[in-house]
Amino acid sequence: MEVRVTNVRKEFERFPALHDVSLDIRSGELIALLGPSGSGKTTLLRLIAGLERPTRGAIFFGDEDASQKSIQERNVGFVFQHYALFRHMTVADNIGFGLKVRHGATRPSAQEIRRRASELLDLVQLSGLEKRYPAQLSGGQRQRVALARAMAIEPRVLLLDEPFGALDAQVRRELRRWLREIHDQTGHTTVFVTHDQEEALELADRVVVMSQGRIEQVGTADEIYDTPNSPFVYSFIGESSSLPVKVDNGEVWLADRPIGLQAPPHAPSGEALLCFRPHDVELLDGCSGCIAGTVAASRRVASTRRVELEVGGERQRVEIELPVDHPAAQKSRVAFRPRRWKLFPAS
């Protein structure tokens, strides 16, 4: 099911949580809403589900306007952050709940519900746990039951709110791979919310980066990582360094020196922000046309050395990464030039 969010605004007691958000989700896609807390990602998910109503704008499921429909009518599978399993029901009853509450002819027989529940338990690899209660399950198992329960109603869209948020790192990685497999197997259009960029980039077909109630960028993991379209995305996804620079006459200047980078042809002259990845730099021996700085601090991080440099007259700090055995790591002055970089208008 294709989902279209068009110009949606959501206010809570007049405080805007989402400003004019539009998003097209393709049928069968696994898409991540990624952002820091307060970015509006969970609000967007709850709007799609029908747990909230938009203040303005509409949400379409296919060609049908779903925004005025109740959550029951939308037929979405929602997996809650803390699972929200019914504690007084067995695993099988939890999974069958959505079928049991149907009315009239659409309601399957008790036997059929049981059969469907154990089928779904097989799918989530928990066969044989039908009679257990949620309290008797581990966190990862509860997560799987919650997903099976959401899938039991044959939802048009599957929505997951921080699906792995409450689990420890090991289980997280395992479930991440498993969720991808389930998605490929069943083909549900799936939207999940996360604040973990690794999770989003690894799992999703496309990632929606959000900040302060707005969508910053939508793209594949490669697009988001390699061509961030704002300083926020640069700094939120992966490591990044930034320097205030000036663009003049097609060249990039740091204080009063050109640093050997040609500004793109359409870049306006004046103040700008230079962003680059700390590991994506070229080290130089002294220079005319480079960024040179005094080593202020140096830390070993995994297999590389991260060096903090003070550059320019205003002693701006900037981080770069060096190979551990690189001679530059011992020096007190280091000169470099970013290999891949981007200019943004100064804010």
């Binding site: 747990l51 599978g77 929200a84 019914f86 007084h88 509450v101 109603i153």
Partner: peptide, 24 residues
């Protein structure tokens, strides 16, 4: 949370109360 889960699974208000809220 539990009530929202029940609603999202298609239960109406009364079913949610009877099967979820009251037992809790």
């Amino acid at each position: 949370g539990d009530e929202e889960a029940a609603l999202s699974l298609g239960a109406n208000g009364w079913q949610t109360f009877w099967y979820v809220t009251l037992p809790n």
